[in-house]
Design a protein around this nucleic acid. Structure first.
Lengths: 116, 116
DNA sequence: CTAACGTATCAGTGGATAATGATATGACAT
DNA sequence: ATGTCATATCATTATCCACTGATACGTTAG
């Protein structure tokens, strides 16, 4: 085993799980729809429910997930709660993914391992 | 509903599923470990098995998934099969994710929705 | 031809999780 | 105080998917 491999393994041990978790956070159509709704502006839960067509408890669940992950932040306003993206780089990450998907090489549909 | 929302919905309908699928492809520790092994160089299945500690059928399964998705490409060499990243931007995406995780705000561990 | 090796496929299994309906919590208005 | 609205939580269910062991396929060596 080379030094390079050792370094890879060391860094992998520490960063693999969080990395996977971040990508999994982004790897659900419902959560992506929610993030999409937040791309342009801050939104209340109701607005997100309307825009995404998802059920309200479902949206709340995913928002909790996204909040715990630190991907969104919230702000109370009376009985409304307004959510927004926690970091610009999240939008960047999504855009980069779209660019990658626009490449001819990357054709995710063909993957039979999961139905997505 | 504003024009902006309509545009969001239209783009979402087309790109949400593939996007989610791409992120899910990246959202598994085993697949990330495999991609990690390929970051620095081309590798045979055996080498990946050794470096990741995963089972051989398991690695083959994930490689098939990654291949179908277009995230890796393969090359036959005798009875060996050597895999490599299909696109530099995949490594970029992973690095960007790591940078995001280095931020204080994004702390994925706290997410209780999935154990990952 | 046959043995040995590298890789891929398959079926079975356990564990994880997204969605739903019911319900709880909290805030505002009258 | 009470009703109403916005949001969050909970339990249930049904589905999905990663892993394993056995095995098949393909290639090289002897």
């Amino acid at each position: 085993m080379t030094l390079q491999n050792i370094q890879d393994d060391l860094s992998a041990a520490d960063t693999l799980e969080p990395r996977a978790k971040l990508f999994r956070g982004l790897g659900d159509p419902s959560r992506l729809a929610i993030l999409d709704a937040l791309l342009s502006d801050e939104r209340s839960v109701q607005e997100i429910v309307t825009q995404t067509g998802l059920g309200q408890p479902n949206v709340s669940n995913h928002l909790r997930c996204l909040l715990d992950c630190g991907l969104v932040s919230r702000r109370n306003e009376g009985r409304f709660v307004r959510y927004r993206l926690a970091d610009r780089r999240i939008a960047d990450l999504i855009r980069d993914a779209d660019q990658l998907l626009a490449s001819t090489a990357v054709g995710v549909d063909a993957c039979r391992s999961y139905t997505g």
